[in-house]
């Protein structure tokens, strides 16, 4: 079935990390971009884990029913947008804490996804397509590592587009002003609540798409263990990405690659203490978080209206 080829040995590890980074990072990328957008408008949505799971279920279910994985992605985005909008509406109410609302919606999203997703655990849905960027290589491993899903590429494009939007467009400026200072936004004539609501809904939609990647491409099936904290982790990634979309991309890739380290090291025979290797991405993120935090009260780059940075 496979052509014999020389054993890559330890060289397999960097290759596995590269491949893993591309495969595993996509959900982190989408959720962190969504959270980045939401937080730039001055709101925290800790509930994106729930949106991710709901998106995974909705996407898989819609793809099963319609036979089209792209309709699945669309449905996941829609479900995510609705959940994001719900978060936005709740947080608009006076005295309602956005962190607590996020936790509540995380619970509700996961609950709804598990409740409504029961009939979709067994069926097999069509997968999203991938582009074989490794066509030039003889090695099936290189080819497998460079088999890149379309959603990952769209995520990369989106990161660039968001970065440009924040820097160079009026929409981006409005979002930033709304996030940095309510007073300035009012002075500017921006519709504060509408902007926040839309940013939160759009952020939710992106998290939903991240969920669809999980269920429709990698690992590519719907079950109740499909998400293991990716949504929560992505919120952490935004903080050390300093609310910059391109750095979100870097953070997602770094975290995905670190996640591939555990299995890759076992594959070359380093198995003792494997639980600790699996913890590597979390330790790495924590280390970076501590290293990049500043003792001054406000975090550099943090939107001024954000509840977690105040």
């Amino acid at each position: 079935m496979m052509p014999a080829e020389p054993d890559l040995g330890l060289w397999g590890v960097p290759l596995a990390i590269l491949g893993g980074a591309i495969r595993v990072s996509t959900p982190f990328l989408f959720v962190s971009l969504g959270e980045c957008l939401t937080e730039r408008a001055g709101r925290v949505n800790l509930g994106l884990e729930g949106t991710l799971v709901l998106g995974a279920m909705t996407g898989y279910g819609a793809a099963c029913e319609s036979g089209s994985p792209w309709l699945g992605v669309g449905a996941a985005a829609l479900a995510g947008a609705l959940f994001g909008a719900l978060h936005g509406i709740l947080c608009r109410l006076p005295r309602v804490n956005d962190i607590a609302t996020g936790i509540a919606l995380m619970l509700l999203g996961i609950g709804l996804a598990f409740f409504l997703g029961k009939p979709f655990i067994q069926p097999v849905a069509p997968d999203l397509p991938a582009i074989p960027f490794g066509w030039w290589s003889e090695s099936p491993r290189v080819r497998a590592a460079l088999n890149v899903n379309v959603l990952f590429l769209m995520g990369c494009g989106l990161a660039v587009a968001l970065a440009w939007m924040f820097r160079a467009t009026r929409v981006g400026l409005t979002i930033r002003v709304v996030g940095d200072s309510s007073d300035a936004a009012r002075a500017m004539g921006a519709r504060l609540h509408t902007v926040r609501l839309l940013a939160t809904a759009a952020g939710g939609a992106l998290a939903g798409v991240g969920g669809a990647y999980l269920s429709l491409y990698y690992p590519g099936s719907w079950n109740e263990g499909i998400a293991s904290g990716q949504g929560l982790m992505a919120v952490a990634l935004v903080i050390f990405a300093r609310w910059h979309p391109l750095r979100c991309l870097g953070a997602a890739l770094l975290f995905g690659g670190a996640g591939a380290l555990g299995p890759a090291l076992q594959a070359v025979g380093l198995t003792q203490g494997y639980h600790l290797f699996y913890a590597a991405p979390y330790v790495l993120t924590l280390g970076l978080l501590v290293a990049t935090s500043s003792p001054a009260r406000a975090l550099a780059g943090a939107p001024g209206e954000l509840s977690i940075s105040r």
Binding site: G12, P219, A267
Partner: peptide, 24 residues
């Protein structure tokens, strides 16, 4: 053999499978 450490953890299981196949 690659241990995932958990009885049900889809992403790790997929990564472990890929790592096995990467090693031949």
């Amino acid at each position: 053999v690659i241990f995932t450490g958990e009885w049900s953890m889809p992403v790790k299981e997929a990564e472990a499978t890929n790592a096995l196949i990467d090693q031949g």
